[in-house]
Design a protein around this nucleic acid. Structure first.
Lengths: 349, 349
DNA sequence: CGGGCCGCCGTGAGCGTTAACATCTGGCGC
DNA sequence: GCGCCAGATGTTAACGCTCACGGCGGCCCG
């Protein structure tokens, strides 16, 4: 205890080298194999032997070496995740959900984020992960080109599932039904009595942007409403603000469906500055339901995505593929949910 | 090529089993050790031999097994990170910075997030990580008890650095100077002419909360200003809103320093509802500078934290400890920066 | 009372790599 | 022309674990 060196309260571990199974076995008076058995919970070991082994493990402060185990079993109990920018709300929350689900199942998560979103970086990341010995790979690929890149990825024998989007026919994909979300949002505005709904999109190369755009357009067309030309954004509040200012000049716009909450915030700001009252003169609905959305001025009507559910679903799917050894068909998309707050109302006049 | 089985365009790899070093060696007409040498860039191998080996590797689609390598070398090129909620802006951004820095240095990141913040979960996570064979551990511990838990953690021989806060004397800590940030924010308000400034804190058990509180209080005292009793929050916009409503009734308050931007958003909302104009009647400053802050109504004056810098600094420190094998003293804290926008102004009257 | 089975445990091999050493060339100096 | 050094390669032994055995008791059953 009162020694200078910090860790070793057990005098028995002065000999620097970390104890291994045979050390434990020797102390317990059994073979290394029996130690392995108690660690892996084999039933064929006498309780009193087990106790002696357990005692020896504590005594020596033994830690199983999972690298050695991984070498012989061929599985590392590690899942690789490749993501884009984990600073964004969506990816961050998804990653969190993935981590929790994996942890639940006794797996670790190796996260790699891509700096560039070019064609080669996704296969590159996958390759790196495979080399490192992960048991399966999750790819969170909102972008079109990176989703396509999955097709040219070194598939090999490592199971892989795409998380937010991807080429459905080639790899299993679990995703949120963006089309439905956009349709719901648009329909909500239409139901309130708006003649039509304008749209600010996300970056064109994001699959989510494309699907939300389609959902919006389809809903308008079905209702026989005009389809104004969409303004293309980039997820950032800055551009939302700029595009919002642009729309400020169009006196005819009474409703805007914005592809995410952050841009919606920018729009709100622009309207506020221009003296256009939301929702009295103009309705706005966002997408994502970030935690801040309820406290915008006014509180934002938006479409909530259950990233958590998506994360855990994709882990479950991957684990299933791991166990069965075969590609498993992905289930249906996760349904988004419209959250009505105070940024939408009946049109003026 | 036109075969049914998906991956093997090379006929030479029909025999299912993944190729190993000796397979490559055999094909190249050398020993497995020579293959190892070209992989590890040894200089003592003839260029033409190297080329033959490289060719054989490509031919067989050979992938080095880093698990086996880790077993023999004792290093896995993997760093463990334990974090709290990676959904929050700060931790998420820090994690991102850590990941980038690690990647840069050729390391992988295993992320584990804690569900509960009790005393045992941090040591538990550290233990899990060690067992898994990580080379070093980064602990992002904003909470007091988890920072304390570091002291009782199974230190062992795995290098460890605490990231946002922690017991400085026991483990190296790299952190942002919260005290200075709070002081700057408070002083800014004082300089504008406010008699005093109120404070909404973060959760009391967060070290950041405590340090920001101290920075605020010290600045007020140095200036000889009254020190109103602080309102305790929890980082969420919801509680910021509630606390903001409370302050609405105190007609004397002209300036509030809020411990983070999300709560500041809630405060802004409360003020807006109560008809109190920001910044004309009341100034607000936040902390963090989240991307949305510039688009609040009004755009928020806040204190920017360079999470990225902190992340990469801590990785550098950890790597240094790894190489030298000794604890390295941490450098000075990262300086936060005041970003003045439109939520602060001279007091009314 | 003997044979077989089962519960408990030990032995040996092998996972794919690197490290340490042994071996074999060829070129150079005397 | 011999020996020697150094550069290029091969051989062997770990690393710490699990897997597939095989052995050895004791119990039950015929």
């Amino acid at each position: 205890m009162g020694a200078i060196d910090r860790d070793d309260d057990k005098p028995s571990m002065r000999g620097r080298r970390a104890p291994v199974m045979s050390d434990v076995g020797r102390l317990a008076g059994v073979s290394h194999q029996t130690v392995s058995r108690v660690i892996n919970g084999s039933l064929h070991v006498r309780p009193e032997t087990r106790d002696r082994v357990l005692w020896a493990m504590r005594e020596l402060n033994y830690r199983p070496n999972s690298v050695a185990r991984a070498l012989v079993t061929g599985r590392s109990k590690t899942l690789g995740v490749v993501t884009f920018d984990t600073t964004l709300y969506g990816p961050a929350t998804t990653l969190y959900g993935v981590e929790r689900a994996a942890h639940e199942a006794g797996y670790f998560i190796i996260a790699t984020s891509l700096k560039a979103m070019d064609r080669s970086s996704v296969p590159e990341a996958i390759e790196r992960l495979r080399r490192h010995g992960v048991d399966g790979i999750l790819v969170i690929t909102p972008q079109e080109q990176s989703a396509e890149a999955l097709l040219h990825a070194p598939a090999g024998d490592t199971p892989l599932v795409a998380v937010e989007a991807g080429p459905t026919q080639a790899v299993p994909v679990v995703a949120i039904d963006q089309f439905a979300g956009a349709a719901t949002a648009t329909q909500h505005l239409l139901d309130l009595g708006h003649e039509t709904v304008w749209h600010i999109t996300g970056p064109p190369d994001f699959l989510e942007s494309q699907q939300r755009l389609r959902g919006w357009r389809a809903t308008l067309e079905r209702a026989g409403a005009d389809v104004p030309s969409p303004l293309v954004g980039d997820w950032s509040p800055r551009v939302g603000y700029e595009l919002g200012r642009r729309l400020t000049k169009e006196r005819s716009v009474t409703a805007i469906f914005v592809a995410n909450d952050q841009m919606a915030l920018g729009v709100l700001r622009a309207m506020h500055e221009a003296g256009r009252k939301v929702p009295e003169q103009l309705s706005v609905v966002g997408f994502d339901d970030i935690p801040e959305a309820a406290y915008f001025s006014p509180p934002l009507t938006t479409v909530r995505q259950d990233f958590d559910e998506m994360g855990s679903r994709s882990v479950r799917l991957l684990l299933q593929m791991l166990e069965t050894g075969t590609p498993v068909p992905a289930g249906p998309g996760v349904e988004p949910q419209l959250i009505v707050r105070s940024s939408t109302a009946v049109p003026p006049g």
